[in-house]
């Protein structure tokens, strides 16, 4: 019996991949990397990796001479681990090992304002954008409205809101939340409904002017803000952290300049229509605020409705 070091290394790496993916689910860290709606795919990965690991185990003791059946005929565009070690192979294994090493040693971080600055917030996009494009957006809105009437689709559940997600709300719950948006004394931007309320308010800032709003987010300052202004932001994640986009409200209050980037705040304030670079947008005139710890669910995910 001869130890095949390349197959041994492959077995170890596959084993570590199995543990890495399983560990993400056991610790719940998965939500720090991807939208939990992809739970299923990464759970499937655990299963496939485990099968591959079991298949790989006996190959560790497969000597260089005793070829497996395939080696007679499949000459190779890939490496079956019979060759000698060379520099390229070592580099190859090092590359595969790299994400495992960083994945096990470095805890996942929450995206912060440095990433937001690279992506550019809503405000900077507005200021570099052209206003004529509003007609395009309006036409989209009209389309979706007429579609709603025609097919009797609940516009709030589907408009701007993608497929499946673990952010489940029944249709009834969602309707109720929508009613709160219209009637309640305070608009409470909780994580589960954030994106829905956010898009409603941004579509029509005038309609919500004067209403009280309560939300939490991280401090993000960019560009030429007045001293009393900052954007209270969240990252909106569709699929994985790499596709995050920044959403948030421009807020105004005394002492905004004292606050550090990335500190988390919970604020209450009154909505007003503001103007940024000639573009109308909602502004929150803050009446009270608190510094809070980063919440367990820092990211906003799309909403999924349960249709009975």
């Amino acid at each position: 019996m001869q130890l095949n070091t390349q197959h041994l290394l492959k077995a170890v790496l596959i084993g570590l991949f199995t543990l890495f993916f399983a560990n993400l689910h056991l610790t719940g860290d998965i939500a720090k990397y991807i939208n939990p709606k992809y739970d299923f795919m990464s759970k499937l990965a655990v299963g496939i990796f485990f099968i591959l690991f079991m298949i790989q185990l006996p190959r560790i003791f497969q000597g260089k001479r005793t070829h497996h059946v395939c080696s007679v005929h499949c000459s190779h565009s890939h490496d079956h681990g019979h060759g000698h070690w060379n520099f390229a192979k070592i580099i190859g294994f090092a590359i595969v090992a790299f994400p495992l090493i960083t994945g096990f040693t470095i805890p996942p971080a929450t995206l912060d304002s440095s990433i937001a600055a690279n992506k550019g917030s809503i405000l900077s996009q507005i200021s570099s954008g052209q206003k004529e494009e509003k007609s395009f957006e309006e036409s989209l809105m009209e389309n979706s409205e007429s579609l709603t009437e025609k097919e009797n689709i609940d516009i709030y559940s589907s408009d701007h809101i993608p497929l499946v997600n673990n952010n489940y709300l029944t249709e009834g719950e969602l309707k109720e939340k929508e009613r709160w948006l219209q009637d309640s004394e305070i608009i409470d931007m909780s994580e589960d409904i954030f994106i829905s309320y956010y898009s409603r308010i941004n579509e029509n800032p005038e309609a919500f002017a004067g209403r009280t709003i309560k939300l939490s987010g991280f401090v993000f300052k960019e560009g030429e803000f007045a001293v009393n202004q900052l954007v209270l932001s969240r990252f909106f994640i569709t699929h994985c952290v790499a596709d995050a986009s920044v959403i948030g409200f421009l807020t105004e209050f005394e002492g905004a300049d004292q606050l550090q980037q990335d500190s988390w705040l919970e604020i209450e304030g009154v909505l007003a229509v503001g103007n940024y670079d000639g573009y109308e947008l909602p502004i929150v005139k803050v009446t009270s605020w608190d510094v809070i710890n980063e919440p367990n669910e820092p990211y906003i995910f799309p909403i999924q409705t349960l249709v009975q």
Binding site: F21, A109, L111, S114, A242
Partner: peptide, 20 residues
């Protein structure tokens, strides 16, 4: 800090892509 940010994005792309 930026390395942690990088690492999170890097791993998230992999976690998303590896099942596929």
């Amino acid at each position: 800090k930026s390395f942690n940010q990088f690492n999170t994005i890097f791993l998230s792309i992999l976690i998303e892509a590896i099942p596929f």
